[in-house]
Protein backbone atom coordinates (compact mmCIF):
# COMPACT_ATOMS: atom_id res chain seq x y z
CA UNK A 1 0.00 0.00 0.00
CA UNK A 2 1.37 3.36 -1.01
CA UNK A 3 -0.31 5.51 1.57
CA UNK A 4 -2.53 5.45 4.62
CA UNK A 5 -5.70 6.18 2.68
CA UNK A 6 -5.32 2.86 0.85
CA UNK A 7 -4.82 1.00 4.13
CA UNK A 8 -7.92 2.77 5.41
CA UNK A 9 -9.95 1.59 2.42
CA UNK A 10 -8.84 -1.96 3.10
CA UNK A 11 -9.86 -1.83 6.76
CA UNK A 12 -13.18 -0.17 5.94
CA UNK A 13 -13.95 -3.00 3.56
CA UNK A 14 -13.60 -5.35 6.54
CA UNK A 15 -16.26 -3.34 8.39
CA UNK A 16 -18.57 -3.70 5.41
CA UNK A 17 -17.96 -7.45 5.20
CA UNK A 18 -18.65 -7.74 8.93
CA UNK A 19 -22.15 -6.38 8.36
CA UNK A 20 -21.69 -3.17 10.36
CA UNK A 21 -24.43 -0.57 10.53
CA UNK A 22 -22.35 2.24 12.00
CA UNK A 23 -18.63 2.85 11.52
CA UNK A 24 -16.59 5.64 13.10
CA UNK A 25 -13.33 6.63 11.46
CA UNK A 26 -10.86 8.82 13.31
CA UNK A 27 -7.57 10.44 12.33
CA UNK A 28 -5.90 12.11 15.25
CA UNK A 29 -2.46 13.66 15.45
CA UNK A 30 -0.88 14.14 18.83
CA UNK A 31 2.03 16.54 18.31
CA UNK A 32 3.42 16.23 21.83
CA UNK A 33 3.79 12.48 21.63
CA UNK A 34 4.50 12.52 17.87
CA UNK A 35 1.76 9.97 17.30
CA UNK A 36 -0.77 9.70 14.52
CA UNK A 37 -3.68 7.45 15.45
CA UNK A 38 -6.07 6.01 12.93
CA UNK A 39 -9.10 4.38 14.49
CA UNK A 40 -11.85 2.42 12.82
CA UNK A 41 -14.64 1.46 15.16
CA UNK A 42 -17.48 -0.71 13.85
CA UNK A 43 -20.44 -2.60 15.23
CA UNK A 44 -20.19 -5.60 12.94
CA UNK A 45 -20.01 -9.23 13.84
CA UNK A 46 -16.46 -8.88 15.16
CA UNK A 47 -13.47 -11.14 14.85
CA UNK A 48 -14.01 -14.78 15.69
CA UNK A 49 -12.36 -15.28 19.13
CA UNK A 50 -10.71 -18.41 17.73
CA UNK A 51 -8.55 -16.36 15.36
CA UNK A 52 -8.50 -13.03 17.22
CA UNK A 53 -4.94 -13.59 18.40
CA UNK A 54 -3.56 -14.44 15.00
CA UNK A 55 -5.35 -12.21 12.46
CA UNK A 56 -2.09 -10.34 11.94
CA UNK A 57 -0.73 -13.57 10.47
CA UNK A 58 -1.11 -13.32 6.68
CA UNK A 59 -2.00 -17.00 6.50
CA UNK A 60 -5.07 -16.56 8.66
CA UNK A 61 -8.17 -15.36 6.86
CA UNK A 62 -11.91 -15.91 6.73
CA UNK A 63 -12.24 -15.38 3.04
CA UNK A 64 -12.93 -18.31 0.81
CA UNK A 65 -11.19 -17.32 -2.41
CA UNK A 66 -7.69 -18.13 -1.18
CA UNK A 67 -5.72 -18.91 1.93
CA UNK A 68 -3.98 -15.59 2.49
CA UNK A 69 -5.43 -12.42 3.95
CA UNK A 70 -3.11 -9.44 3.77
CA UNK A 71 -5.21 -6.47 4.88
CA UNK A 72 -4.42 -6.35 8.59
CA UNK A 73 -0.87 -7.80 8.27
CA UNK A 74 0.09 -5.07 5.77
CA UNK A 75 -1.31 -2.37 8.04
CA UNK A 76 0.47 -3.88 11.05
CA UNK A 77 3.72 -3.85 9.05
CA UNK A 78 3.30 -0.24 7.89
CA UNK A 79 2.67 0.81 11.48
CA UNK A 80 5.60 -1.15 12.83
CA UNK A 81 7.93 0.15 10.12
CA UNK A 82 7.19 3.69 11.20
CA UNK A 83 7.69 3.10 14.90
CA UNK A 84 4.06 2.42 15.70
CA UNK A 85 1.81 -0.52 16.27
CA UNK A 86 -1.55 -2.03 15.46
CA UNK A 87 -4.07 -2.81 18.17
CA UNK A 88 -7.27 -4.76 17.73
CA UNK A 89 -9.91 -4.58 20.40
CA UNK A 90 -12.86 -6.96 20.23
CA UNK A 91 -15.80 -5.15 21.75
CA UNK A 92 -19.05 -6.63 22.94
CA UNK A 93 -20.30 -6.00 19.45
CA UNK A 94 -17.84 -5.16 16.73
CA UNK A 95 -14.17 -4.38 16.51
CA UNK A 96 -11.98 -1.38 17.17
CA UNK A 97 -8.89 -1.17 14.98
CA UNK A 98 -6.28 1.27 16.19
CA UNK A 99 -3.18 1.92 14.11
CA UNK A 100 -0.46 4.09 15.61
CA UNK A 101 2.27 5.79 13.59
CA UNK A 102 5.16 7.97 14.60
CA UNK A 103 4.43 11.20 12.69
CA UNK A 104 8.03 12.25 12.16
CA UNK A 105 9.32 8.78 11.26
CA UNK A 106 10.87 8.73 7.80
CA UNK A 107 9.03 5.55 6.88
CA UNK A 108 5.60 6.77 7.89
CA UNK A 109 3.44 6.54 4.78
CA UNK A 110 1.82 9.80 3.64
CA UNK A 111 -1.87 10.31 4.38
CA UNK A 112 -2.86 10.03 0.74
CA UNK A 113 -6.22 10.82 -0.77
CA UNK A 114 -8.40 10.21 2.29
CA UNK A 115 -11.28 12.00 0.58
CA UNK A 116 -11.32 9.49 -2.27
CA UNK A 117 -11.36 6.59 0.18
CA UNK A 118 -14.12 8.01 2.36
CA UNK A 119 -16.30 9.24 -0.51
CA UNK A 120 -15.87 5.96 -2.35
CA UNK A 121 -16.95 3.83 0.58
CA UNK A 122 -19.83 6.17 1.52
CA UNK A 123 -21.17 6.05 -2.02
CA UNK A 124 -20.79 2.30 -2.34
CA UNK A 125 -22.28 1.46 1.06
CA UNK A 126 -25.13 3.88 1.63
CA UNK A 127 -26.86 1.66 4.21
CA UNK A 128 -24.06 2.14 6.71
CA UNK A 129 -23.80 5.27 8.85
CA UNK A 130 -20.25 6.60 8.46
CA UNK A 131 -18.84 9.07 10.95
CA UNK A 132 -15.52 10.72 10.22
CA UNK A 133 -13.40 12.86 12.52
CA UNK A 134 -10.07 14.60 11.94
CA UNK A 135 -8.32 16.06 14.95
CA UNK A 136 -5.02 17.95 15.06
CA UNK A 137 -3.79 20.92 17.14
CA UNK A 138 -7.30 21.79 18.36
CA UNK A 139 -8.57 21.83 14.81
CA UNK A 140 -11.40 19.43 14.24
CA UNK A 141 -13.35 18.37 11.18
CA UNK A 142 -16.18 15.91 11.25
CA UNK A 143 -18.65 14.39 8.85
CA UNK A 144 -21.64 12.22 9.62
CA UNK A 145 -23.57 10.60 6.78
CA UNK A 146 -26.77 11.13 8.79
CA UNK A 147 -26.25 14.89 8.28
CA UNK A 148 -25.79 14.34 4.56
CA UNK A 149 -28.97 12.26 4.54
CA UNK A 150 -30.85 15.14 6.18
CA UNK A 151 -29.47 17.68 3.73
CA UNK A 152 -30.30 15.59 0.70
CA UNK A 153 -33.69 14.76 2.20
CA UNK A 154 -33.29 11.03 2.02
CA UNK A 155 -32.14 11.01 -1.58
CA UNK A 156 -29.83 8.18 -2.55
CA UNK A 157 -26.41 9.77 -2.22
CA UNK A 158 -24.57 7.20 -4.24
CA UNK A 159 -25.07 9.68 -7.12
CA UNK A 160 -21.70 10.46 -8.72
CA UNK A 161 -22.13 14.24 -8.29
CA UNK A 162 -22.70 13.81 -4.57
CA UNK A 163 -19.79 11.40 -4.09
CA UNK A 164 -17.51 13.80 -5.96
CA UNK A 165 -18.66 16.61 -3.69
CA UNK A 166 -18.05 14.51 -0.54
CA UNK A 167 -14.53 13.75 -1.76
CA UNK A 168 -13.69 17.44 -2.17
CA UNK A 169 -15.39 18.31 1.11
CA UNK A 170 -13.38 15.72 3.06
CA UNK A 171 -10.10 16.70 1.44
CA UNK A 172 -10.76 20.34 2.23
CA UNK A 173 -11.34 19.34 5.84
CA UNK A 174 -8.16 17.29 5.77
CA UNK A 175 -6.14 20.26 4.52
CA UNK A 176 -7.70 22.53 7.10
CA UNK A 177 -6.94 20.17 9.98
CA UNK A 178 -3.58 18.72 8.98
CA UNK A 179 -2.04 21.70 7.23
CA UNK A 180 -1.76 23.02 3.72
CA UNK A 181 -0.30 20.00 1.96
CA UNK A 182 -2.76 17.21 1.45
CA UNK A 183 -0.34 14.39 2.13
CA UNK A 184 1.36 15.75 5.16
CA UNK A 185 0.69 16.47 8.76
CA UNK A 186 1.61 19.83 10.17
CA UNK A 187 0.23 22.35 12.57
Amino acid sequence: MRDLSLHLMDILRNCVDAGSSKVSIGLKADRDDDVLTITVDDDGRGIDPGIANCVKDPFVTTRKTRKVGLGLPLLADSARMSGGSLELVSKEKGTLVKALFSISHIDRPPLGDIGATVAGIIGAETDIRWILTFDNCNKIFSLDTDDIKKRTEGMDFSQPVIIAWIKDYVNEGLKFVFGGVLNEISC
Binding site: S5, L6, M9, R13, V16, D17, R63, T65, R66, D113, A116, T117, A119, G120, I121, G123, A124, E125, S158, Q159, P160, V161, I163, A164, K167
Partner: peptide, 29 residues
Protein backbone atom coordinates in the same frame (compact mmCIF):
# COMPACT_ATOMS: atom_id res chain seq x y z
CA UNK B 1 -8.52 -0.07 -7.80
CA UNK B 2 -9.36 3.12 -5.93
CA UNK B 3 -8.17 5.57 -8.60
CA UNK B 4 -10.07 3.46 -11.12
CA UNK B 5 -13.25 3.73 -9.07
CA UNK B 6 -12.75 7.48 -8.69
CA UNK B 7 -12.26 7.85 -12.43
CA UNK B 8 -15.63 6.15 -12.99
CA UNK B 9 -17.35 8.37 -10.41
CA UNK B 10 -15.81 11.53 -11.83
CA UNK B 11 -16.60 10.71 -15.43
CA UNK B 12 -20.16 9.63 -14.64
CA UNK B 13 -20.62 12.84 -12.65
CA UNK B 14 -19.34 14.94 -15.55
CA UNK B 15 -21.79 13.28 -17.90
CA UNK B 16 -24.64 13.47 -15.37
CA UNK B 17 -25.20 9.73 -15.53
CA UNK B 18 -26.80 9.58 -12.08
CA UNK B 19 -28.59 6.34 -12.85
CA UNK B 20 -25.38 4.32 -13.00
CA UNK B 21 -24.22 3.09 -9.61
CA UNK B 22 -20.57 2.57 -8.73
CA UNK B 23 -20.11 0.02 -5.96
CA UNK B 24 -17.43 -2.27 -4.59
CA UNK B 25 -17.00 -5.92 -3.96
CA UNK B 26 -14.39 -8.10 -2.29
CA UNK B 27 -11.85 -10.34 -3.94
CA UNK B 28 -13.16 -11.70 -7.23
CA UNK B 29 -10.56 -14.47 -7.25
Amino acid sequence: ARPVMNAFIEELGKRSLGNIKVTMTGCIG
